[in-house]
Amino acid sequence: MWKDLPLHPEQASTLAQPVDLLYLFLVAVSAFFALLISVLIVVFTAKYRKDRPNATSAHIEGSTLLEIVWTGIPLGLTMIMFGWGAVLFFQQARPPANALEFTVTGKQWMWKAQHPTGQREINDLHIPIGVPCRLTMTSEDVIHSYFIPAFRTKQDVVPGRYSQMWFEANKLGTYDLFCAEYCGTKHSQMIGKVTVLSQKDYEVWLAGGGSSETPAQAGERLFSALRCITCHNNTAGARGPDLAGKFGTEALLTSGAKVMIDAEYVRESILNPAAKTVNGFQVGLMPTYQGQVKEDDILALIAYLKTFGAAKAAASPATGNAAK
């Protein structure tokens, strides 16, 4: 029975082993101190028991030297743990630049995912081995948390904003996907599988995935369908700022502050246009699209705005710094 009892989940991502290593370090330190304290208690209790012959208590006030030692050593050890953990955390937080872009939307009680090429799946995620994958995630209702134990990573998925996680799988197989943040009645059923495929199998899988358009194409379609383009164009006297090549750049606001045009800002501008208006345009002119666009639509629009910029930059290399 005990042989079947694994003590850690499979290591299936590049960061799984570093996390396990840190874990083992902490286990070792903890075991050492727990044993040290236990042994000292047992030894002292046995050696200085009350019913020993001629028992007396020594008068000991304490020892400053000992206090310094047992303050200093744990402090040093925790600083090592802190530094090690922080470095690892930032590695987990900072995706490589060449990562494949997936989007994930959580809702009670399912995980919807979309591939860079547009294929969608629910409660499943198929990814290629050896390629960093970045997940941009949001929620349609409450807070969820995307947790893949085999990859040793999780990230809360918060309504109203984007959170992000990344991983690079390094072992073929199928792994558990859990929702780790309590999200209501069927929280324990908000589970799924992450399947790591060879790059070739991934191509095959994509081909059978039945996608008609990529997120960027969907965004382009929405950009017209929602009539964004009637104001956001580069004609003189346009009522909204031209958005081509703006993604990833900074904009000056009416308040004089600057804002980075990123996913969060685009999202806020669609849902709360008056919150941060670009300088030179009328505050409150743009109506809110709250309730008219779904989270998926906003993600598609963001994907489009990114390529919109890139396309323009590619077309006119002189202004190539517009897209990062």
């Binding site: 709360n272 008056a274 505050v283 409150g284 002119l285 809110t288």
Partner: peptide
């Protein structure tokens, strides 16, 4: 009220 003087719900 927004820029057109029209009342809006759910604004910041």
């Amino acid at each position: 009220p927004d820029a057109h003087g029209v009342g809006q719900h759910g604004t910041p």
